[in-house]
C-alpha cells in the first residue's frame, strides 16, 4: 500500500544507496521510518488477530457448554465475586486509558508524562493480578478446582457438588482467566521494558513504535476482559 502510488518516478529515486538522512532506528531493509512504522503496526494487528483466534477457541467451548447446561453455568457463576469482577474491570479500563495517554504524550514529546502513564498502567495491571489472586485463592479454599479435581465444600459451594457439569464452568473459568492473566503478565513485562527505554530517552515523537505496539497489545488484553467479565460473572 505504501509504495503503489507512484508508478514512474525518476530513476534516481529508486537508489538504495544510503544517501538520505538516515535515523539510527531505521533498519537497513526499510526505505523510510514511515514504512518501518507501518510495517510494525500491520504486523502487530496480525499478531492481535492471532490472539483473538486463540481466545476464540475458549469462547467456543464456553458457548457450547453454556448452551447445553445453562443451569449449571448459572449456579456456578453465582459463586463468583461480582464486586471484585467489577472492580477489576474498572482497573483494567483505567489502565487502557493510561496506556492510550502514554502514546498521546510521547506523540507530543512529553516524555516524562509518558513515563508516568506507563508506570500507572503497570501499577494498575499489578492491581488487577492481585485482585485476581484473591479471587483464585478463595475458589481454591472451597475446592472449586477445574474439571476432574472439582470437590466443592463450605457454604455457598456445597450445592455445586450435586449439579452435573458445574466443573465445566470452573474449567472454562480458570483456563480463560488463567490465559488472560498470563497475557496481563506478558503485557506488564513489555510495557515495563518500554517504560525503561522511555526513561532512558530512547523514544520521541519521531520514534515510538514499541510504545504504540505495547499499547495495541494492552488494549486487546482489555477487550478480552470486557467480554470475559459479563460472560463469566454476570450471566
Amino acid at each position: 500500500m505504501a509504495t503503489d502510488t507512484e508508478t514512474a518516478p525518476a530513476p534516481t529515486t529508486t537508489d538504495i544507496e544510503h544517501d538520505h538522512d538516515h535515523p539510527a532506528h531505521l533498519q537497513h531493509h526499510f526505505v523510510s521510518s514511515e514504512q518501518q512504522f507501518d510495517s510494525a503496526k500491520l504486523g502487530m494487528w496480525l499478531f492481535l488477530i492471532t490472539e483473538v483466534l486463540l481466545f476464540s477457541g475458549m469462547f467456543v467451548a464456553y458457548a457450547v457448554f453454556r448452551q447445553w447446561h445453562p443451569t449449571a453455568f448459572a449456579e456456578a457463576s453465582a459463586t463468583l465475586n461480582r464486586t471484585m469482577g467489577t472492580i477489576n474491570t474498572i482497573v483494567l479500563l483505567t489502565s487502557s486509558l493510561t496506556v492510550a495517554l502514554s502514546i498521546h504524550y510521547i506523540q507530543l514529546d512529553k516524555v516524562k508524562q509518558c513515563f508516568y502513564s506507563l508506570l500507572a498502567t503497570i501499577g494498575l495491571a499489578g492491581g488487577f493480578m492481585v485482585i485476581k489472586y484473591f479471587e483464585y485463592t478463595s475458589k481454591f479454599e472451597h475446592g472449586a478446582f477445574p474439571g476432574g479435581l472439582f470437590e466443592p465444600h463450605g457454604a455457598h459451594y456445597e450445592h455445586l457438588a450435586q449439579i452435573p457439569y458445574a466443573p465445566q464452568f470452573f474449567s472454562i473459568y480458570f483456563v480463560m482467566t488463567g490465559i488472560h492473566g498470563l497475557h496481563v503478565l506478558i503485557g506488564m513485562g513489555f510495557l515495563g521494558w518500554a517504560a525503561f527505554h522511555v526513561w532512558r530517552g530512547a523514544f520521541s515523537s519521531e520514534y515510538y513504535t514499541h510504545i504504540e505496539l505495547g499499547g495495541l497489545y494492552w488494549h486487546l488484553v482489555d477487550i478480552i476482559w470486557i467480554f470475559l467479565f459479563p460472560l463469566l460473572y454476570l450471566i
Binding site: 503496526k41 500491520l42 492481535l48 488477530i49 483473538v52
Partner: peptide
Amino acid sequence: VVVFFMALKYDNPVNALTFTIGIIMV
C-alpha cells in the same frame, strides 16, 4: 476501545480490514 484507544478510526484502512477479518473468523 478499538476505534478510539487503538485509533483504528484514524489508522491505515488495511489494519481495520485485518482486524475485521479476524473477528469474522471468530
